[in-house]
Design a protein around this nucleic acid. Structure first.
Lengths: 202, 202
DNA sequence: CGTACTGTTGAGATCCGTCAAGCACCGTGG
DNA sequence: CCACGGTGCTTGACGGATCTCAACAGTACG
């Protein structure tokens, strides 16, 4: 889809499908920084940041709406709602990155995975893509590994552990929560950081 | 200094001294998200984020200037320069968090440490606090461990490795580069992400 | 029918954490 | 002056979490 070095200063809004932003390292490893799900902005960072090796990639088939940034940063008064939404998204993105840092730095593989699956559920629920039972998820175990700083082999083992412990099941593209409370406790998951409502006073 | 739960919606600019922002986990571990050095904004995230367990702490004696956010978000036209500087700082903060995620997720302890010390050098150089030889650094090995997701014991070993390999020395509160090129190569360090100059078109 | 991709499992190696002990420094108070 | 406690640094031994290498199964697709 998109690749690094694009300077067109344009963002997108993801309508359907999943994508991810990641950075490639010289030894071939990659670190996924974030996943984009329907309703998310895409390209914010890539248009504002000059980081080498930083790229966007679609995971499933996707539909996007293009957002010309002249509208965003240009007249200022032209589309205050969109600008506000963008600030909201940026704040939430920051909050998610903080959690990501905590996740990678101080939690072990099981806890990390649990936290990740719960965060995804909370995000998907906001756009109606997660139900009581769980949610559909097109990510491969390689995606999970690259996001969580694990090898895909270990991702596999961790998923089996969590399933056999009766906490979550991730099979055939579906995430199902078997013990939501237990998982939340294990992961020390508090969804408050995803709800950055009106903290920036207008 | 400051502690979580403050809702006064105020930011600070750090004039002298060092501080850090971190999150505490229920098991007592902590993850340092970022260090603040002179010239940095502080409290941006803590006033915009409602994340539990998120705190600020001073590392050395510090001097700050208080910034009332009515000035920032209020009149809008009152202080465009400050607002622009804040946006710049936010963009750089984001870029640093991306690097932090990559660091924690996909680099081993030596490389992580190398990258961290080089990033700090680049940041300090911008405010005149790093010279050719190196820089003064008040961080303890515990700080380094909590920032890099390592135990302080392992931090100690890694620092000895790097010193004996003739790359960097961190002793007695001073960081000295013995082989700057070699270290940069080892760490895959590219300072471009710290220089977020005029990417946001006005 | 072959190829590519994803998932699965095992065995061995490695990195890093934990526990433990000891040292150096420094300020305090007797 | 010295004893003392606190903090930070250093090192060794051991164990565990995770990685790497390797092989194989299932599925989709040409």
């Amino acid at each position: 889809m998109l690749h690094e070095g694009q300077i067109d200063r344009v963002g997108y809004i993801l309508i359907s499908g999943w994508a991810c932003s990641y950075k490639l390292l010289p030894d071939g490893k990659r670190q996924i920084v974030n996943f984009q799900i329907p309703g998310d902005f895409m390209g914010l960072r890539s248009s504002m940041l000059r980081t080498s090796g930083y790229s966007l990639e679609s995971i499933s088939d996707i539909v996007v709406v293009e957002v010309c940034n002249q509208v965003l940063f240009g007249g200022r008064s032209e589309s205050p709602k969109l600008t506000a939404a963008l600030l909201w998204a940026a704040a939430r993105d920051t909050a998610m990155m903080v959690e990501h840092i905590v996740n990678l730095g101080r939690r072990d593989a099981r806890t990390r995975m649990a936290h990740f699956l719960l965060e995804l559920e909370a995000r998907l629920a906001l756009v109606g893509l997660a139900g009581k039972a769980g949610y559909r998820c097109p990510l491969t175990q390689y995606h999970l590994g690259d996001a969580l700083g694990l090898s895909s082999v270990h991702v596999n083992r961790v998923l089996r552990d969590l399933r056999e412990a009766g906490l979550v099941s991730f099979q055939a593209g579906k995430v199902e929560f078997l013990d939501h409370r237990g998982l939340t406790e294990l992961a020390d998951f508090d969804p408050a950081y995803l709800d950055q409502t009106p903290r920036i006073a207008a």
